[in-house]
Every structure is written in C-alpha cells, then in structure tokens.
Design a binder for these strands. Structure first.
Length: 878
RNA sequence: GCCCGUGUGGCGGAAUGGCAGACGCAAUCGACUCAAAAUCGAUCGCCGCAAGGCAUGGGGGUUCGACUCCCUCCACGGGCACCA
C-alpha cells in the first residue's frame, strides 16, 4: 500500500492545537523533587523572530522535551525583554506609542514562536514593561538601596550622544555605544549605581564552582572583574617642593619588587595633588585642561601619545631618604583605578619605558632574565616583563621577583610613618560599579523622589509601582519623562512638601537580571512571590543563549541574584547552574556589481561545473557571491523563519538547525541543507509507516526468546537509544542527529531484508520491529515533535508521544558475545580477529599470532611484545 | 601588546590515548521514467594498474600506539586593552 506524503502544514497546526487544548506543557508548582528548569534567553520584541531565535529555541525545546520524557518536572517558560530604545525610536519615526508598538510586536512574535511547536508554558509569559513585572523590580531597587547596594554618586560616565543617555562600561564597545555605534563621550553626572563591586570577590571566586559553564565565558568574566594583588605605598614628599597641606603621595603597585628601578612618579590629571599643584602653576593647569579636552571621546584616548608634565614636586624613595623622584602629571594615569598615582619603573613596564625615553629620565634594569649576564643586560626600547633574578636592588639582589615582592611588602608594612605603616597590601579590581540611570522614557521608573528639604526619599511601598505616564511626546531630544508637564511633580513622602520625581529610568539590563526568578511564580499562585517557590525551581538547570551576553547580561544576573539573596528575595547565590552558548546562524552574502546587497530570496544559484554562479531571479543580472557572514539586515543575508516554516514546516527548520554543526559553533543556513532535512522528514514518515505495517500484528506480550534477526534488530534499537540519550544529555545535537540517521538506515535495511524473504514473519521479529518503530519515533520526537506525533498515531498509540516516557535502555543488549578486534603490527593495522568477549589475553595473543596477515607483516621476525587492550585493540610489537 | 579558542576529504563535521573520515551535504555512474522531479542502487581523502604507500595546519617530543598529551612555529577567529 503506497504511503501518502507527510503534509507538514496540516499536521503541525493540528498537533499544536492538541497540545494547547490538553495544556500538557503547563507546569504546576508541585512535585518539584525532580525538577528541571530549562531557559533560553528571552527575546527583545523587535517584531519578527530571526533564525538565531529558531536555533536557540529549538535547542532549548529538545532539552525540555527530553527531560520531560525522562521523568522530570520541567519548567520551560517564555517572555519578553520589552523595554528599550527601539520602541522610542519607532515612536519618534512613526508616531506610534512605544507601548502599542511593543505589544503589537509581542503579538506577532508570539504567533511565530507558536508556529515552531515549542513546548513552552505560556501561562507564565511575562513582559518586562508590564507594571505587574516592574513593580517587583522597583521594590528590589528600594531593598537594595536600604542595604547599601544602590548608591547615588557623581562620576564620570559614558555618554552616548546619539541616544542621549548614559551607558555602563560593559555597554561601550571599542569606544562606541553598543546600540547606537556612536563614539562615546565622557561626562560628569550624578547617577544611580548598583554596587556590583561589593561582590567583586564572590563573583570571581564562584566562577570556579560553575563547572557547567563554558570555560571561555568564565575566563571572560574573570578578566572583566580583573583582580590584581598589590601594595599601597605611601611616598613622603619633599616639603620644599610641595604645595601646602600635602605631605605624601600614596600609590598602588603590583610590582613592589621593582622599587629600586623607579625613575619617576606619575599622577592622574584628576588627582588632588595635581589639582593642588596646578593652582600655583598656570602651565600645569593648562596641561591638565588639555588632557581633559582630549579625554572627551574614548577613541582619542585610545590613540593618544603618552604625555607628561613635571610638577617640580619631589617624592622620597621609601628605602632611601636621599633618593628623590620627580613627580609628573601624565595623561595615561586613570583616577579611578588604584589611587590614581603610580611609581614608574621603565625597565620592566613598557608604558613607563616609553615615558622615560620621551622625557630622558634613564633606565635601570632590576630583574635580570635567566641565562643572561647582569652586566650585559641592557634595556633600550623593549621593557622586560618576565621572571628572573633581582639585580641593582641592594638587599633584594639575587632574589626572585616573587621573593622580592614579599620582602618589600613585609619591610614596608612594618615601617611606620606617623601612626600608620608605610605600605599595606591591597586587592584591586578592574570591575566598576554598574551605572543604571538612563535618560529615557521606555524603561522601569526609578522609584525615588527628590525633596529640597529631605533629599532623596524612597517612594513608599504602598505607592508602588511607579508607572509610566502614557501621554508623552517624542518631538524633541532628551528624556520625555522630564518634559512631561505634571508627572514629576509630587509631594515628598516624608515631609509632604513639594518634591520632584526621579525622571531617569533603569538600564534595561536590570529588567533581564532577574526575569528567570519571576517565571518560577505562576500568575495564579496561592502565595505570590513566595521565596520558597523560587528556591524550589532555581537555579536554572540549563540556560541557553548567545555568547554576546558572556559579560553584560550574565554578570549582571549573577550580581542581581546575590543582591536578591542579601535582601531575602531568593536563597541562592548563582542563577544559572548550566550555561550553553550557541553559535550564530550565518549565510552567504550576495551583492550586485554596484555593491548593493541582495537578499537570498531574490537570487538563483546555478552550477557551472564546479563553480556556483548567482543571478538575480527577475532580471538574470549576474550577482557576486560574497563571504559567509552572520545574518544581518544590513547585509540582507537573512532568511525569514516564517517563509521556511510555511514552505517546509517547523520540524524541517528545527531539524536542520540542530543537524549541521556542533551547537556551539556557527551554522551556515543553506537551501541544500534545508532540502536535505525535508527529504529526511518524508523518509522517516515512509519508514515508520513500513515498520508499523510489519509490527502491526505483533503480540502484546514480549516474546520469551528472540531469533537472531530479531535480536540483531533489538541490539540496533537499544544501541541507538543509548547513543541518542547520551548525545542529548551532552547537548551534542549534531551527533544525536547522526545517530538517528544511522538507526534509520539500519531499520531501512532490515525492512528491505524482511520484504525479500517474502512469507510469514515470525512474531518475535514483528515484536522487535514494533519496538524499533516506537523507539525511532521517540528518538526524533524532541527535535521534530509534530512529525513524531503523527507517526506515533499511525503506529496505533492513543497517547501523545510528547507525554510518553523515554524508553529504558536494555544494557544487556549492548553487550556482544563476540567482538572484532583490530590487529596492529608496530602500530599499523594489518588484520582483524574475532574473539569471544571474555577471551583471555593469552588466548587472543595466540589467535593473533596465527593470522597469516600478521605473520606476513612480521616478515620472519619474532614479536618482542604483544599488547592486548581488552575490548579494544591488539598491537604486536616486533 | 596581553589572554583565550580553533585548525580533520570538495563542504558541515564524527572519533573515553586504541580501526581517522561515523552521519549529512555536494558530486559521479546506474535503475525507474517519453522526460524531469521524487525514489532506489553503487562510487566517493590523496598517490598508485596493483601490492602498497601517504594523510587530522608545519616541525619536534612522550608512548607499543597520538586528531587526542607536551614543546615550538604558522594561519584564522574571539575577548581585553593606558587597570600600574
């Protein structure tokens, strides 16, 4: 009987409806002893999903469905990272309200996601722009404020001149705003900060415990936090050369061992001593002003030449009162790292070397590389930053730099000036506090009120949430909240006098720093916001998303979770136990002769011998095939998931996304690959149909005995089951796909053999065939759930495969009675030998040496040694 | 500049220190067809008629045995970048 083609379009919407009606993916907050929380990074509602989303959510869905089948209570929710600039841009460009624009986009994208057949619990859907979401965020802000994790301080900030808002350090990439791409300027503003630096050490230390995170991400965070251990050293200043009120200069160094190589001191232009000295020195004041002028744009700082100005002040060397060092103001010293002052040792620091070479201050090497004679060791243009032995350093001579560092630290710690030690050990971090104030409308309002009498006053908890006004205008630059005629005018909660509402909103990265906790609380919970429920679900067992969030989102979320713990919102430290960073979806680029990009949909590819040629489908104009790049609107090399799904079905899109490349690498979207996936869908459909027919009459009870062909089939079935299960656990979806292909090929051969035998089929074989068909369907069900349901139904099941438990692997079927061992002679394969599984090594050795091929390879020589690796290989050494 | 990762057929890639190239894509030949598509069968790392040899970026090392471990060089990709 011919089998009809599988109609994806019809079947997919039908099964989606069944899943929906039966509510099988809704997760109750009960029975959490075996819980599994799988989460994909939630999308920004830009309006349409792209192939990156398809890849991300396909992976998460495989994990969710697999874990559900293996008996876990699975939480797999979806929501919307809904605040942000694009909504305001749309408002400015198209006169749509950001809220309307956002919710339209959410509706459109939700429909797209639904068409993918994802096993999501939509009852927990959330949008961060919803007051019922951000009221919790405002509450947490106030809790953080109370315990000192939120601070208000004046500081130099990164100002994005295009978006007219402040950016966090993490949001400045190559000196440009992460969103606008405009060169970032430095401005001095009073801003709200999350005190992420208070957790610098725990955030760093806990990276060691995140053993299910990619090494790369942990390293990136480690470098970003940037811990360095060093010494704070107080240098006395020569009073004759020093402005009134100043008597010493404190510096931070990680290389106290090089103290005898010091040639100068350098101050940041913002350093108080520099400012004090500038008051009496107009030339110095001008130099500092010049530094600041140059310092407005990050790009200029990056390229600036090292410049210094001698203040005339002299600092006294801590080990020699007669040795003084000139104090410079230098443009490359940062005020907000260490103390904003350094001592310069040119021999062993490239920047310092460049500086002394410019100003002629001399070089004395103090660390001599191994196997180099101290007398002949000279530094000219390249500083030596390696290890060795101390030279020219008095009592340190002969020590290693590590020993010298310890010796210097101990001596200066024990020496007092005034009532304090001259030096103390200090740990410094590169990490800066997280500035969250944004001068924008479409974000979470910061719930404080400014009062002339009382200062900054928190909004009362009963007045939360502070909601955004809807009647705002976007017809001029700046913050629409600030322009609003009445919104900011409120009375002070403390004194009742006139107050002004804070008009800054929070960085949208705050919204995404805790959404994973919010999902644990279903809307209809008896006790909303019960920390016990959050703790029962948290941490996220498997988090999946792009590597681009390695620092920003993932570090903020780690901080936020700790802050939530400190304020009693959760009981855990780390939000994501397992993290997987998937690769990008890439595609060939196409362009016309004049350089205009052309989308793949407009191009026809032809093969001319070995070379592929592209033409514009409409006019036959020749098209240049460009490099394979990340799908982007600007290069127009995108493929619309909607079009793929309507042409081939969601299962095909999902399958191809999972099949071609390892999930952490980039995958190239190709038409050929999609067609291959589509062919395989039809092949599986036919194969399951045929296997189902053979297995149709099988007895319900499992036969006591299996004939050799039936046993062989069962072995293949259980091997596939074990292999696919292992591969899914490791998220090796491409390997998983390969094993499914392999099993499908085997099953196809077995069916072919059974057909050719023509006649009645033994019942044990029909039973094994039915088992094989069931298992095959279950194996691909997490990846192609619609096809799987359709196949499952044709196999006569009245249950849903989405709810079927994962079959148990019968381990005894994986063990072979006889094994084929490869035989090597001197490491080169010469033969194979078939031996019983439990054969003794001596027995195997004898069998191997009797082989003709082995004797021939030995060529009359007698073997020196025979290495038998049980179950693996035999190697004869001659 | 510093740190990290990657390198395997025409392509994507597989391989607890144990048969390199599973599986897929592409290609070639054949069957079916009036023809095409679909489907099915065969071939498919390189050299060689073959026997055999050579092959996991290059070179060296450890090992009975190395894609896998170590050293070194090269290429590509990524992160950080006046952080003292």
């Amino acid at each position: 009987m011919p089998i009809e083609r599988y109609n994806a379009a019809e079947a997919e919407s039908r099964w989606q409806k069944v899943w929906d009606e039966r509510g099988i993916f809704a997760t109750p907050n009960t029975n959490l002893s075996k819980k599994y929380y799988v989460l994909e990074m939630f999308p920004y509602p830009s309006g349409r999903i792209h192939m990156g989303h398809v890849r991300n959510y396909a992976m998460g869905d495989v994990v969710a469905r697999f874990k559900r089948a293996t008996g876990h209570s699975v939480l797999h929710p979806m929501g919307w990272d809904a605040f942000g600039m694009p909504a305001e841009n749309a408002a400015m460009e198209r006169k749509v309200h950001p809220k309307a624009w956002t919710y339209q986009n959410i509706a459109a994208m939700k429909a797209q996601l639904k068409s993918m057949g994802l096993s999501l619990d939509w009852s927990r859907e959330l949008a961060t722009c919803d007051p019922s979401y951000y009221k919790h965020q405002q509450k947490m802000f106030l809790d953080f404020l109370r315990v000192g994790l939120v601070e208000r301080k004046q500081s130099k900030v990164n100002w994005d001149p295009v978006d007219q808002t402040v950016l966090a350090n993490e949001q400045v990439i190559d000196g440009r705003g992460w969103r606008s791409g405009a060169p970032v300027e430095q401005r001095e503003l009073t801003q709200w900060f999350f005190a992420i630096t208070k957790f610098a050490q725990p955030l760093l230390a806990a990276l060691e415990t995140l053993d299910r995170w990619p090494e790369k991400v942990r390293l990136m965070q480690k470098n970003w936090i940037g811990r360095s251990e060093g010494l704070l050293v107080r240098f006395a200043l020569d009073p004759k050369t020093t402005p009134d009120g100043e008597s010493e200069l404190e510096i931070f160094t990680t290389r106290p061992d090089t103290l005898f190589g010091a040639k100068f001191m350098a101050l940041s232009p913002d350093h108080p001593l520099a400012q004090a000295a500038a008051k009496k020195n107009p030339a110095l004041a001008e130099f500092i002003a010049e530094c600041k002028r140059h310092g407005t744009a990050q790009e200029i700082i990056d390229k600036a030449e090292k410049l210094g100005f001698d203040t005339g002040i002299k600092a006294v060397h801590p080990f020699d009162p007669s040795w003084t060092l000139p104090v410079y103001v230098a443009n490359f010293i940062l005020m907000d790292y260490g103390t904003g002052a350094i001592f310069g040792c040119p021999a062993h620091d490239q920047r310092d070397l460049d500086f002394v070479n410019k100003y002629g201050l001399g070089v004395t090497p103090v660390v001599c590389p191994p196997e180099q004679a101290p007398r002949s060791f000279v530094i000219t243009n390249t500083a030596y930053e390696g290890d060795g032995r101390m030279i020219n350093s008095r009592f340190l001579d002969g020590m290693t730099p590590a020993q010298a560092r310890e010796d210097v630290a101990r001596r200066l710690e024990n020496e007092k000036r005034g009532d304090r030690p001259v030096a103390q050990r200090q740990v410094n971090y590169r990490l800066r506090d997280w500035g969250i104030s944004r001068q924008r409308y479409w974000g979470c309002p910061i719930p404080v009120i400014h009062c002339a009498a009382c200062g900054v006053v928190p909004v009362l908890e009963k007045d939360l949430p502070v909601t955004l006004p809807e009647d705002v205008t976007f017809d001029r630059p700046g913050n629409p909240l600030d322009h609003h005629p009445t919104w900011k005018n409120v009375s002070c909660p403390q004194c009742g006098g006139p107050g002004r509402r804070e008009t800054d909103t929070m960085d949208t990265f705050v919204d995404s720093s805790w959404y994973f906790v919010r999902f644990t609380d279903p809307k209809n919970a008896a006790e909303p916001d019960d920390p016990k429920i959050a703790d029962a679900w948290m941490p996220v067992d498997q988090y999946i998303g792009g590597i681009e969030h390695a620092i920003l989102h993932l570090l903020y979320s780690r901080f936020f979770t700790r802050a939530m713990k400190q304020t009693g919102h959760v009981g855990i430290d780390e939000p994501f136990a397992g993290l997987f960073t998937q690769g990008m979806v890439v595609h060939e680029t196409y362009s016309r002769q004049n350089g205009d990009w052309v989308s793949p949909a407009e191009v026809t590819i032809e093969l001319e011998g070995e070379t592929r040629r592209a033409r514009l489908s409409t006019t036959n104009e020749p098209i240049v095939i460009g490099p394979i790049e990340k799908m982007s609107k600007s290069k127009r090399n995108t493929v619309d998931p909607d079009e793929i799904i309507s042409a081939y079905g969601a299962d095909v899109a999902r399958w191809f996304m999972l099949s071609d490349s390892p999930p952490d690498r980039d995958v190239e979207w190709t038409e050929r690959g999609v067609q291959g996936a589509a062919r395989f869908v039809q092949r599986l459909w036919r194969l399951v149909g045929e296997a189902g027919e053979i297995g149709h009459g099988a007895p319900a009870a499992r036969p006591a005995q299996f004939s050799p062909p039936a046993l062989a089939l069962r072995k293949a079935t259980h091997k596939a089951l074990a292999n696919v299960g292992d591969a899914v656990e490791k998220l090796h979806f491409n390997v998983c796909v390969a094993h499914i292909y392999e099993f499908a090929n085997t099953l196809n051969e077995v069916i072919g053999d059974a057909d050719s035998e023509d006649g009645s089929v033994a019942t044990d074989f029909t039973w094994a065939m039915r088992e094989a068909a069931d298992v095959l369907v279950q194996l691909f069900a997490p990846m192609m759930p619609h096809l799987a349901e359709e196949c499952w139904a044709t196999l006569g099941h009245d249950t849903l495969v989405a709810q079927a438990p994962w079959p148990a692997v019968e381990r005894n079927l994986l063990i072979e009675d006889t094994i084929t061992l490869p035989v090597q002679v001197n490491g080169r394969k010469r033969a194979e030998v078939i031996v019983p599984r439990d054969a003794a090594n001596a027995q195997i050795e004898a069998a191997v040496l009797a082989l003709d091929a082995v004797q021939k390879a030995l060529d009359g020589k007698s073997p020196k040694k025979v290495i038998v690796v049980p179950q693996r290989i035999v190697n004869v050494v001659a």
